[in-house]
Structure formats: structure tokens, C-alpha cells
Amino acid sequence: MSAERKDDHVRLAVEQQHGHSGHNQFDDVSFVHHALAGVDRSDVSLATSFAGVEWQVPLYINAMTGGSEMTGAINRDLAIAARETGVPIATGSVSPYFKNPDTAETFSVMRRENPDGFIMANINATTSVDNARRAIDLVRADALQIHLNTIQETVMPEGDRSFSSWGRRIEEIAAAVGVPVVVKEVGFGLSRETVALLEKSGVAVADVGGSGGTNFARIENGRRELADYAFLDGWGQSTPACLLDAGGAGIPLLASGGVRDPLDVVRSLALGAVAAGASGPFLRTVVDDGVEALVAQLSTWLDQIAALMTALGARTPAEMASKDVLVHGALRSFCDDRGVATGRLATRSGSPDTIHRTIGSIR
């Protein structure tokens, strides 16, 4: 059943990508164009550093799959593409491995194909400390992702229904493992209150995992006989909303959920993220066109991220947090309701004392 469910997830996620409208709240963020702000491309570095972690690029392939023969082949190709481009990568949830050790190869293939790359192992918030360590050992992980997915579990026919212990378990794992712990949502977003709780729990990094990309409520509803949870289709906060809401958090923020292209990556950096990740666009490419096409896609994204930073005058990803942005539409309404002052984002590059301040210091 677990292998069949993993294959269903891939099939339904790719179908979503094929039918995606393309619009989300990243479109409510635009840059103020300063025609003389540009720098020399040779002066631009894509390297980013946070919570003791160093990445050569501010882009990562986020958690997707594993646990079946088909998904193991996908993980192999994802790992090859990560190796060829230097992009960090996360495994899918390794829960199938805990239930059936015979699925180990569908995950460990990622380390074999990408021996020197940055790999994050992915577990759920019910995982024991011992199993968290097993997940790290399985792929010799450089970091551990713990995913939060209450809405997905709620819609999933065989999903969990007990969530009260998740916070305590995250705190136990963060204290016990020897690698940085990243907590991520799976597409419904992290509020600033949740990020504050994660910081207190000893979590190193929060991946806001907002709405706008792959919708796991819709995926799980598609697996239900009556498809009777369609009313949850729009649940949660978008990734830009989460970044603005949690600005000034005491831990670094990663941006995933609805990241469609290099412009969304650069928008994420401008809203306070230290890096941005995507799953759906890369899954669609590797499934439809193969690993060589994914290598080309990732290489193009990295080149275009650097090109946008050059035009905007950002020599590093961190400098993107001082660039002038405008917030429009429903995203601005969300910020107004949550007390986030967006107006000053449009002029923050003009004052020398604000040139290096992050999004949080405007709150």
C-alpha cells in the first residue's frame, strides 16, 4: 500500500503541474526598477550561508518521493541532476523505509549518485529519535528535514489523526541529532507564531512551505472514493505571505511552495529567505523529459538567478533583502490584516542605514 500511495502521489503531482494555472501570490510582488542599480556579473556570487550551513547556490530541490521502484528511479535522476549542478537536494519522506527496509535503495541511491552533494533526509513529526538517526545514516545526510502536514494527514484516507505530540517530538529530535534540523510545511505555510515555536524548540531553519504549488490536500482528496474534502483546496498561506509574516524570525527562513521560476527565487530572497526550493517544476521535467533536461533546467535557473541579481545590484543573495519591492493585491491585504508594514519595502534601498537590513527589521 505504501509503494502504491507513493506512486499515486507522483502521478497526481505531475497531473497538477500539467494543469497548473501558473498564477499565485508571487505575482503580487514586483521590484522597483532602478536603471542604474546594476553591478558587474563577475562580482555576483550565488553562495549563501545560514545556521552553520554553506551552499554554493540559493536554490535547492525540495523533498519529493521514494519508497517504490518507480520513485527510486526518480530519486536517482534527481540526485544526478543535483550532482551535475551543485544544487542541494532533499529526499522524500523516508517513512516507507522504517516500515519496509527493502525500500532503502530507493533513498540511498541519492547518496550513491551524489556522493559529495548536500543532502537532507526527510521524516515526519511522529518519527522517533532512533529512526531520525536511521534516516540520517541512510543517506549520510548533511541536514534533517521534518515535515509538517496536518492538512494532508487530515484528508489522507489512512492519515494520522493525533497531532498534539508533534512539537515535543521535534524538540527531542533537534536536541539529539548531530546535524542541523530544518522544519518545513508541505504546502500550507508556517505562520510567524509557528516559526517562533520552532525557534524555541531548537530548530536551526524553518522552510515556510507555503501554498501556490503542489497541493497535497487535492492530491489526497483525489485518492478518496468520494473526493469529499474539496473544500480545503485553498487552505493555508502562500510562500510570500509566510516570508513577510515571519520576517525578523530568530532563525533563517527557506522559501518553498509555488516557486515557479528564477524570478520567484529572487523574489523570495528579497522577502527575507536565504534560499528557495522547488519540487513540482523539477518533478515534471524529470518525469516528462528525463535527467538531461533537468540538468539543463537547473543550469538555466542558476544562470538567470545570477542575471537578475546583476540587474538588481545584488552581489550576494543576502543583499537581495535590501532591494525595493512593491506588494500588491491579496498579499497586501493579508499583510495589512497581520500588521506587516509593506509600504517601507518600496524605499528601503534609499537609506544607507537600511541597506543591509533584512525584511524583519521593518516590522
Rank of each mutant, 00 (worst) to 15 (best):
D27T: 12
D27E: 05
D28F: 07
V29K: 09
V29D: 09
S30D: 07
F31M: 05
F31W: 00
F31L: 10
V32N: 03
V32S: 01
H33Q: 07
H33A: 08
A35W: 07
L36A: 05
A37I: 10
G38E: 10
V39L: 15
D40F: 12
R41V: 14
S42A: 15
D43M: 08
V44Q: 14
S45N: 03
S45H: 06
L46K: 04
T48W: 11
T48Q: 09
S49P: 01
A51M: 13
A51V: 09
G52H: 13
V53Q: 08
E54Q: 14
W55S: 03
Q56H: 04
Q56S: 06
P58H: 04
L59W: 04
Y60P: 03
Y60A: 05
I61Q: 15
I61S: 13
N62T: 12
A63N: 14
M64A: 08
T65E: 03
G66M: 10
G67W: 00
G67M: 01
S68P: 11
S68L: 12
E69D: 11
T71C: 13
A73M: 13
A73L: 10
I74R: 04
N75S: 14
D77M: 10
L78G: 07
A79E: 03
A79M: 12
I80P: 08
I80H: 01
A82P: 09
A82T: 10
R83F: 04
T85K: 05
G86T: 15
V87L: 07
P88V: 01
P88G: 03
I89W: 13
A90N: 14
G92Q: 09
V94A: 12
S95L: 15
S95V: 15
P96W: 06
F98R: 06
K99H: 14
K99W: 01
K99D: 08
P101E: 05
T103K: 11
A104S: 09
